[in-house]
Design a protein around this nucleic acid. Structure first.
Lengths: 239, 239
DNA sequence: CCGTATTTGTCCGTATGTATG
DNA sequence: ACATACATACGGACAAATACG
């Protein structure tokens, strides 16, 4: 029998998780985030299966995983739909993101090395440079790297993963067209406050700076446009 | 064609998600949290299928979802294992939980009604009563209700769900036997600080009280026992 | 080190439920 | 309102990989 001979796997073999389902999960995720299908649109199982030249089984499993992750929504007997993020849900997500990023900042403040601090300052300078030219295509990736670096320096993988998931879900909203464009300088000023809090290793101040930075992003979203009108489905599964 | 005729589903029909897979997901989750299978142990797909008198398809889908949720771990060609939470992972989870609960407290402080405040005080009194008798079986559910109430009063479903998931994952660790038993009075004293911060609607103070309360729980865990020895798997999939 | 048994991975067929004309 | 077409849900079977003797 198996009993105790079956033990938990090491963390390493998760990386080369080369099952067909996990590959599909990644691919479908890419499709979703690429915006090929708009929010609310339906994904056809068979179409996906033929597209990747596989059977529907792995596709279903991959979709089930993505549903749990909040990227798609599964309706019994109707199929899988790209998750629609309403404005209020986006606002909720921003609060969660603020909680996680703020805490990442707090932990980072307690653990950051001088080298890491210097690296962050480099990113600040680079953002200042491109912000001056109002180049959002240049600014965005550096901004992303800044946030990811902070999350990394917190040395808490669980926290970082939760943060990434949160950001990913918000991409579904951003894809709707409501991109928080403006505010380079003000954004980078907030970044600077975070780094300064790191420099003096002030945990609470770092938290608050990170928390408020995300909250500012939320406010920009909420102020822009009217957001998606809550278009009612023609008919949910009535039973 | 489908085009726009297919719109996103309303939030309501998620509740009666009566597909076989989602039922299995709930059932298997119950099995895991009940401790019927210890952490690291393997779940046999066919055994689960016959147990619930269903095919392996829905079982596999349910397990995929649980894997994404972090309750089980899927290893290609080897199967599904109950997730093993090491002490360091538990510590990381506590930081995340602290972030979420602290933020829930912060939001609650901004939105709590007098009635809700009164309800919390009732829970405090009840916990004091059972703490006096050192009755952990009585204390635990009230303690749980207190935390859930606070999470609810924050009026942020996304946050609450993330918090619940976090707590659920920590149950996998608690199930190992390292229950944070002691400290009734000190715990309820922290509860009282949270409620007092609510009473004066101090957001930052509420956050810090909630954050530190969870952190205290973390410290109790870390201090207890040596934690699970990292028993190495006999052989990972070598390829 | 090799053969066998068991388990997982994948695919396909049928039934049921939903949307459309 | 009814019938038709189509997509999903589930079950079962075959192939591949792994574990054990």
């Amino acid at each position: 029998m198996y009993e105790q001979s079956q033990t938990a796997p090491s963390d390493l073999d998760l990386l080369k998780n080369s099952s067909l389902t996990s590959i599909l999960q990644t691919e479908i995720e890419k499709i979703i985030l690429s915006g090929e299908f708009g929010p609310g649109e339906r994904l056809n199982e068979k179409a996906l299966a033929t597209r990747f030249s596989v059977s529907r089984g792995p596709v279903r499993e991959a979709c089930r995983a993505l549903a749990e992750r909040g990227l798609v929504k599964l309706i019994p007997n109707r199929g899988v739909f790209i998750r629609e993020i309403t404005k209020s849900e986006a606002a909720e997500l921003y609060d969660v993101r603020a909680a996680l990023f703020g805490t990442a900042c707090r932990l980072t403040a307690e653990r950051i090395t001088d080298q890491e601090l210097a690296d962050l300052r480099v990113l600040l300078a680079r953002m200042d440079a491109v912000a001056y030219r109002r180049d959002i295509d240049e600014y965005y990736p550096i901004n992303l790297e800044f946030h990811n670096s902070v999350a990394k320096y917190a040395r808490n993988n669980t926290l970082m993963q939760a943060y990434r998931e949160c950001v990913e879900k918000l991409h579904l909203f951003r894809a709707r067209g409501l991109i928080h464009g403006g505010g380079f300088e003000v954004s980078n000023k907030e970044h600077r406050q975070i780094v300064e809090a790191f420099a003096v290793r002030d945990a609470l101040k770092s938290f608050e700076a990170g928390y408020q930075h995300v909250q500012e992003g939320k406010i920009r979203i909420l102020m822009s446009g009217e957001g998606p009108r809550a278009k009612q489905p023609p008919a949910g599964p009535r039973n």
